[in-house]
Amino acid sequence: MSFDLIIPIIITLVGASTPILIAALGELVAEKSGVLNLGVEGMMLIGAVVAVAVMLTTGNHYLAIICAAGASACSALIFGFLTLSLSANQVATGLALTILGTGFSALFGQPYTGQAVPLLRSPFAPELAQHEVLRIFFGYSPLVYFSLIMVVAVWWFLQRTRWGLILRAVGESDHSAHSIGYSVLGVRYLAVAFGGAMAGIAGSCFPFILTPQWVERLTSGRGWIALALVVFAAWKPFRLLAGAYLFGLIATMELYAKAAGGNFRILPSELWAALPYLATILVLVLISMRRQGSTSAPACLGRPFVPSN
């Protein structure tokens, strides 16, 4: 391997990281409001299959992405209705959502397997997008730029807006927020729907950036990595960006090292594969140690809210 590879590696790792980043941003907002939705993998699959179906029918990438976001948001609202209005257990409901998404996407996607899907390529002129060096800035799919904009937007929303403050208050202390007069459930519904929409867009990254096709279980477990990433990033958007690219770097470097041949494999490949999960656990422990026993998880995460009026 040589330095010439730095730019190609960055291009590949950004692509690999983008769906995880987008899905994790959505989950971050949901979790900040106090809702743990384990159905990310299922929602991503729904998004991916809807994106392919709409793309192959209409030929419009952006319409496909919007429909993917809408479909996944609808599935998230099923989750929301059960966990919020009916205060059902979030863990079980999230798992059920993943089972539903896996089954639905496999069934709905059957007519679309075996067809190539056009990629959503860089919006910039070829002189920029394919330039040897400048492609590091201009060579990406619009979905990549969207993910970066959303990192800033989510940070700005959570830290700088009144609505963000309310959302965090709902996640940290639902009863206080309720007693001040905020609609805890209303906020959480919106957060869950946003999480679903983002998971759907993340799903559309698979056929539009990574591998332009539909096939059952296309996302192969990336939804669970997104869940890990939210924790790894300690619920902070910019750390989420860094974490997503770090996870992407681990996965990408492994492949580039293998492709380089020779003795580049320092660790058994199983350890590489387990690394993101082990790192996430380590980060959880470190956060807790630094703060003397309090994790940075939203205080109400996973707890149903029942007003005590």
């Binding site: 590879l5 990574l210 996965a251």
Partner: peptide, 14 residues
């Protein structure tokens, strides 16, 4: 499939 595609990218880049 996504990882297979990335493996192909890594190979072509080298």
């Amino acid at each position: 499939p996504a990882k297979e595609a990335d493996a192909a990218r890594a190979l072509i880049d080298q």
